[in-house]
Write a protein that binds this DNA or RNA. Sequence first.
DNA 1: ACAATTTGAGCAATCGATTGCATATTAAAA
DNA 2: TTTTAATATGCAATCGATTGCTCAAATTGT
Lengths: 344, 344
Amino acid sequence: MRNGKTTIHDIAEKLQVTASTVSRALNNNPRISDATKKRVQKAAKELNYQPNNIASALRSGRSKLIGVVVPTANRNFFSSVIRGIEEIANSLNYKVVISQSYDDYEKEMQTIEALLNVQVDGVIASIGKTTENVDHFKKVIKKGIPLVLFDRVTNELDVSQVVIDDYFGAFQATEHLIQEGCKRIVHFSNSQNINIYKERKRGYEDALLKHGIPVDPELIIFSKLQLEDGRRCMQEIIDSKIIFDAVFSSSDYSIMGAMQVLKENGYKLPQDVKLVGFGDEPFTSFTEPTLTTVNQKSIPMGNITAETFFEILNQKDQSNTLSKRTILKPELIIRNSSLNTQKK
Amino acid sequence: MRNGKTTIHDIAEKLQVTASTVSRALNNNPRISDATKKRVQKAAKELNYQPNNIASALRSGRSKLIGVVVPTANRNFFSSVIRGIEEIANSLNYKVVISQSYDDYEKEMQTIEALLNVQVDGVIASIGKTTENVDHFKKVIKKGIPLVLFDRVTNELDVSQVVIDDYFGAFQATEHLIQEGCKRIVHFSNSQNINIYKERKRGYEDALLKHGIPVDPELIIFSKLQLEDGRRCMQEIIDSKIIFDAVFSSSDYSIMGAMQVLKENGYKLPQDVKLVGFGDEPFTSFTEPTLTTVNQKSIPMGNITAETFFEILNQKDQSNTLSKRTILKPELIIRNSSLNTQKK
DNA sequence: ACAATTTGAGCAATCGATTGCATATTAAAA
DNA sequence: TTTTAATATGCAATCGATTGCTCAAATTGT
């Protein structure tokens, strides 16, 4: 107990049993009698015993750490997913190590490497935008530890995934615009290598087709979907004199840029042009007009992702790893930017 | 090497030396000859050796993990500070464990407990808004590991801190409004128990006094500074017929609320009322008009916080812990919400 | 050429908890 | 009462790396 740290040996000595017994008692091993367990727990409390997780991790091979890799925590969606993951993980006495890849392929690899280095028991990740090669994730799998992907996933890996139904979200959003009378709906999309953007575009197209509106490639604009991209694309459309009456963007950020440019060019919103974004970032309720957008159910997604993770972790012992895919329904949040009849 | 994991023993065997020698060679111990070091490094690479940090941590007592506690990562300021911390930490081969307290006292205590449990080598924290008691931080100090606070600090603890000069930021912001011709400047503040808000209020007051404008308590409104609070407070002021020509808020969120309410009440911005926020959240450049605000130098703050942390960690051995306080100058970002002459 | 140093590396204990196997005690079955 | 089977605990190795101490070889000084 020198250094103020109580170990199982101190408890063992006090109770005149062995450390093995103490360890088993604390881990609720059925081979230990209830009476002994009670005594051990009491002594542990008295001596203010704090288990040494590192020693435990070394011997047992379980660090009780989960590595979570996100492009950036500084996004409402990701930080909420993390919160959802933490809720579950903490309740099971696991800690979450958050790593940010900053959407950078190099950094993402390093970060995975670093997580494996600190010996996480598994990894939960959302793939960065610039990541084309997924070998670093294969490394995780090869190590035999669980890997679960959420939102930004890939088909190249046979792992469990939790995603939202991007197709459905985009379909709903587009249909909503159509119902508000729009016929020439611009769509902002990103590289079609990224699944979520491909799906959203598909939802957009199918909604148009369902209502007998032709898909006009001229109206579909690709970019990185940042604020600046939205500004630039919007300006180009305006300059090109293309006729349009709405914009549905795959990102709240780029629709913000579009909104700014439209206002600067004297358009009245939402009368002249209706807007719908994607992501339900907090600022979407600050804008003028407030922005209709798609909520991605981030906290439930975090919960489910963590639950999936622990299922795999626990069945790991039987080594029958089946990978499942969970799809959540997003929710269209209707605000003023898409409505003819404004609500307060 | 069973299980695919190379250990120092495998290297030792291959090279016909002992594990001690390998360990020392890898740690660049001067007692090992350069020739041996080279051989060991080569063998390590060949065998794809990955050090077992857990074993190392157990023996050496150093986990190479830093616990970072923030109210929420979902804020530009905090996520940027984290990025700044990571830059330094990663370069020194340390990993950062991010924990969110969600501004909740209970959660903050648990989170500190959990970090100590995973045996972080130290803690970097920003204190939650609802935290009045700091005993959990004392626990960190008592454990003898470094603690550095940033931004939301306390005087009750004798630890190193990195803060911005809130007084200066507020002073500048207020003076800027005065120079733009404002004389009746409303100030939104939070509980004066929280240092940063106290300092900002002081800066606001001193700027007024410097320019011969009396401080009118009627113009200083206290709230939690969320969007809704901003809306409510602004509406109250309008209803009370108090005369005012500007608002300087200690938070970008509440100034957003104020902006909305002002617009809803038919005020022309910035002609009728000029606005300045604090924090430089990303959405401040999306608003209409774009919002003047105070940038808190988050990445440098993260860098400096980490550097301070490592200074303490390294001098720890000599156990002469001196605590220093670093103060960064914030920067006023002037946008349209406070200007008579708009810029594009 | 021999003692005194310096240099390089090995030995073995250690960090704290876990766990397979052995053993003692007690209860149930024959 | 003796055998069998649970039940409860102990023993000792182990996880992988680190480190104080010891010792042999090489170098230097006289």
